[in-house]
């Protein structure tokens, strides 16, 4: 149970931080041909924060207010480290590192809600 929630937190953390990263001109322009417009940046930023907030909500929902925040911060740290190291070697994966974790998180979340806590 906890392991699945940790995976879900990792996925949401990766997607959220990946989106926040793409809201920064330096990282965005390294991947996309079109320079970052202000609107796009705001959209990336909003999406990123939503995913991170959702991750906290999931952690608190399944682990409670005592362990939830601990697990949320821990998974955010791990996700950020993975993101920074992987993208330092393969910057082109930036887009995939948002989409794939998001899809797998969605699948996990559906599975969890179907199964119930």
């Amino acid at each position: 149970m906890t392991a699945i929630v940790v995976l879900l937190n990792l996925g949401l953390g990766l997607a959220g931080l990946g989106a926040l990263r793409l809201s920064l001109a330096r990282h965005h322009d390294a991947v996309f041909a079109v320079p970052l417009a202000r609107r796009r940046a705001l959209a990336w930023r909003a999406g990123g924060w939503v995913a991170i907030a959702l991750s906290l909500a999931v952690a608190v929902r399944f682990e409670g207010w005592d362990f939830g925040p601990v697990q949320w911060l821990g998974t955010l740290t791990a996700a950020a480290l993975a993101l920074v190291v992987v993208l330092s070697y393969h910057p082109r994966l930036a887009w995939w590192l948002v989409v794939l974790p998001l899809l797998s998180s969605a699948a996990l979340l559906t599975g969890l809600s179907a199964g119930g806590p």
């Binding site: 940790v6 697990q71 998974t75 791990a78």
Partner: peptide
């Protein structure tokens, strides 16, 4: 209190 998954995260943070 940390189970195996959470313990790995604490360990990773310690390494960092």
């Amino acid at each position: 209190f940390a189970g195996p998954a959470l313990r790995v995260l604490f360990f990773l943070c310690g390494l960092m």
